[in-house]
Computed example of a mutant assay.
Amino acid sequence: MTNDPLAADWSSAQVEVMHRLRDWVVGFTALNQHLGTWMRLPASDANALGQIIWAAETDAPLSPAQLARQLGMTTGATTILLNRLETAGHVVRSRESADRRRVTLRPAPESREHARRFLALAGTEIAGVLHTTPPAELRTVAAFLARITTAAAEADGRLSSGSRTP
């Protein structure tokens, strides 16, 4: 494979996958904007709140630093965003760890329930696809997405460290 991805000889299946990944990002962004409207929040705040709720739902609550990485924001900008969400009553910061310096982000119960009502309305089609897809296909897709996510994280780490060579 050439070092120039734009000059590489891509198969039609590879191009199709990249188009579908892009389409998912576009669709997810649109749904996030609807969540923002539903919650009466700017899209960036709704995205952050969604990340906080999802993490809490999976029993893996985020720290502010983890949220900043997921959002692609600086810790300072994330702190300002969290201050807005906390002031509006959407997020609670707590110290649940033995290390009292570690802050855990949790959605406020009312905001969590309001977001759940949105997901019940907005997630119907996505849930339908997930529930009707055969388990073997889901495992294949999950494995592929894990590999492509790892590749993206490796590229991000390399670029963040200032390295311009693969």
Score class of each variant (00 low, 15 high):
T2I: 08
P5S: 09
P5V: 07
L6D: 09
A7Y: 06
A7M: 07
W10P: 00
L21A: 10
V25I: 00
F28D: 06
L31K: 02
M39G: 01
N47C: 00
L49F: 08
I52T: 00
W54A: 12
W54L: 12
A55G: 06
A56M: 05
E57S: 13
A60Y: 04
Q66K: 09
L67P: 06
L67C: 03
Q70C: 06
L71A: 00
G76A: 13
G76Q: 08
T78N: 04
E86W: 03
A88M: 08
V91P: 05
R95K: 13
A98M: 13
T104E: 06
T104S: 12
R106Q: 12
R106G: 01
P107Q: 03
S111G: 11
R117E: 14
F118Y: 12
A120S: 14
L121A: 15
G123D: 08
T124V: 15
T124A: 15
A127W: 11
G128E: 10
P135Q: 07
A136N: 10
A136F: 08
L138D: 06
A142F: 09
A143G: 09
A143K: 14
L145A: 13
R147H: 14
R147V: 03
R147S: 14
L159K: 03
G162M: 06
S163D: 14
S163I: 05
T165S: 08
